[in-house]
Design a protein around this nucleic acid. Structure first.
Lengths: 229, 229
DNA sequence: TATACACTGTCGCATATACGACATTGTAAG
DNA sequence: CTTACAATGTCGTATATGCGACAGTGTATA
């Protein structure tokens, strides 16, 4: 457990908690190890806890009525999630799978509730977390609505650069590890079209395609080129 | 003010507050009258308050990078909104215009913050409200992703029937007052296509088109026909 | 090294949908 | 009643995108 504390605290949200609250939460965590492909929870299930990613990567997925999977988010180390069902006692909103072998820290629902009773000063921190959820959902909506696929793609790439390289110096080259297939699922498009669009962006000199990876030499350039118009 | 209390309390969220907290909030509200077309707030502005709709109708709108307006939500009497910026002190997420002459109740930001200090037991209620925001945003994403336009359209119609006729007996006929143009903006489509799709639904006997209105005789039938597949 | 497999690059066709154009119909105001 | 205007109904055309197909390429494993 001890070795994951720095990772868990690297989250902007968790890092803003005063140390004694961080410790209070650490005290109530258990570790859970998961194999690649294993499901952490399913849409519609009762939520059993609040999670933090220690290592590995999780896929948050929605299955549409037509059976197609849509990739909603990729959760890397330092990401906290699962608080919605803790507060409203309603079922989970998404399916959640491990992309790789992973370790998560979990605070069980009971422990979570007693923690809030014991430390009501946690509330403002959780409203803060919920606000970031709402805002990122809104951003997601903005970027998937009324934009050309190419713009959606660029927006998604930029979202990925910021959520991964959390503490990166500005405008440094960044390499994203994900397949074109995954990217396509994120913007509800097809692999072929994504490949096509990445090709255009590559010939504009804005990125490079590799096997299972994409390199963006200057994120800011990509940003300024496509944020407007 | 007194005459709007029942409307404001008809909200599922507000109605769940214990009476003394409802009164505490009423005590801190001012009324604001707005003309049709007037803007209540703009995306990017600092949030000055938390609002409840007393009468009229407001349009929550996003302007995409291409300049197209997307209609995000229609807020009718009894709807509360604007709490996000109260909790995270970040700018408003959307533009907000009056569709008709309207009256809103407003709790100014300062009053809102002191209210929370005075009554910290409000926090669980606001986390509940924030959770509904997140969930409806997720639902919005689900319904605009990977579905055919026809399915998106039906989903949106069903969302409108539930958010308007809040306390309606189940499966009663309902008439929605909005133009095909507005509907089109909600699903990022064109008026012509929406007209076409509504025509198909009409010939399936699931609804009737009128001038500026749509009548759904049996919402449940529409639901069961299009929720799956 | 050999083999299997996942990912990528690219073609062509089918289809959904945006959009301009124009006629028609409902509604409000003088 | 008349006029203006907003909303609807319906064409045809252009375009974006999904998707099957298949070859090429990188990576892991025996």
């Amino acid at each position: 457990m001890e070795k994951f504390k720095p990772v868990l605290a690297s989250s902007t949200w968790f890092g803003a908690l005063p140390p004694y609250l961080q410790e209070a939460m650490f005290d109530r965590m258990r570790l859970k190890h998961l194999k690649a492909g294993q499901q952490l929870h399913a849409k519609g299930e009762d939520g059993v806890g609040f999670y933090g990613v220690c290592e590995g990567r999780l896929r948050v997925v929605t299955v549409g009525v037509d059976g197609r999977e849509m990739l909603f988010a990729l959760l890397g180390p330092g990401t906290w999630f699962g608080e919605i069902s803790m507060f409203d006692d309603l079922p989970r909103t998404h399916d959640n799978f491990c992309e790789t072998n992973s370790t998560v820290a979990i605070i069980q629902k009971n422990a979570f509730k007693t923690l809030l009773v014991q430390y009501p000063e946690l509330y403002p921190h959780f409203t803060r977390l919920l606000c970031t959820r709402v805002r990122s959902a809104f951003q997601f909506i903005d970027s998937s609505a009324g934009l050309s696929l190419k713009h959606q793609l660029v927006k998604r790439l930029l979202m990925l650069t910021t959520s991964y390289g959390q503490h990166l110096p500005k405008n440094n080259p960044i390499t994203l590890t994900l397949s074109q297939e995954s990217l396509a699922q994120m913007i509800n498009s097809s692999r072929q079209t994504v490949n096509q669009l990445l090709g255009e962006l590559e010939s504009e000199g804005l990125l490079k395609r590799h096997y299972g990876k994409i390199t963006i030499p200057e994120p800011d350039t990509l940003f300024s080129r496509y944020q407007f118009i």
